[in-house]
Design a protein around this nucleic acid. Sequence first.
DNA 1: GTAGATGCAAAGTATTTGCGACAAG
DNA 2: CTTGTCGCAAATACTTTGCATCTAC
Lengths: 136, 136
Amino acid sequence: MSETIEQKCIAKGVKLTDQRKIIAKVMSEANDHPNVDELYNRVSKIDSKISIATVYRTVKLFEESGILTKHEFKGGKARYEELNESHHDHLIDVKSGEIIEFVDQEIENLQKKVAEKYGYDLVDHKLELYGVKKKP
Amino acid sequence: MSETIEQKCIAKGVKLTDQRKIIAKVMSEANDHPNVDELYNRVSKIDSKISIATVYRTVKLFEESGILTKHEFKGGKARYEELNESHHDHLIDVKSGEIIEFVDQEIENLQKKVAEKYGYDLVDHKLELYGVKKKP
DNA sequence: GTAGATGCAAAGTATTTGCGACAAG
DNA sequence: CTTGTCGCAAATACTTTGCATCTAC
């Protein structure tokens, strides 16, 4: 088991307020990719006085601190997930919205190769696959 | 030289108004990836009475008709480009915003393979590389 | 104690929409 | 003619921000 978000905040010198602790806890426990509304709903159940502005401010702060990562999947609201050692990309079921995480080292290597071919160092990338479930 | 957007509209039965003809022309001639504001500016130079609502409605219509494609690059406004036979992905210079188009058949094949591995047919995908120019 | 965080409501952006006037087929 | 489009302004959706108050360190 790796560090919790709260531990990461301490490690990175991010001040821990009650609100941030709650948001950290909810995100640490999430195993999906909540958008700000969903996160706000979950957080509100723990402390109903937290404002959505704080949720926005906190996810932004956590993102800038390298604790969360933001995804902007097709035509939807921004979604967040905890950033951890294992990088992965996403396969999105266009019918159900289900999100599957995957890793493909070969694709990663090829991406770096493409960037280099054009004289660039790859600093970031986004790979999203959109699919429909196959008929058996 | 392939079809103009105007010709594609006719082929697809999209009604051609004066405004749409102008937007079609500007997009056909663009060799970048304008966002709606930029497109509106270019279009306004030809006919200053076109409203931005029409530009929004038209790019949406063209997208749904398979004439334009929409990109939502990191943290910016939506950008559009003409959809044509040659599929490609994008490498974005994070400093300058410059956008380079590239094709890598090997990555394309691997994507399909990943989707299949999870029992999906790939219907769409998004691959964006973000890089910084290498020091010589 | 002080710098920074919060809640609230108001302000920004980007985009969409209702409606009466208008134009393409 | 008739259906769909346009321009306008108002509405919406998501996100950010100014300000007075409060809190972690």
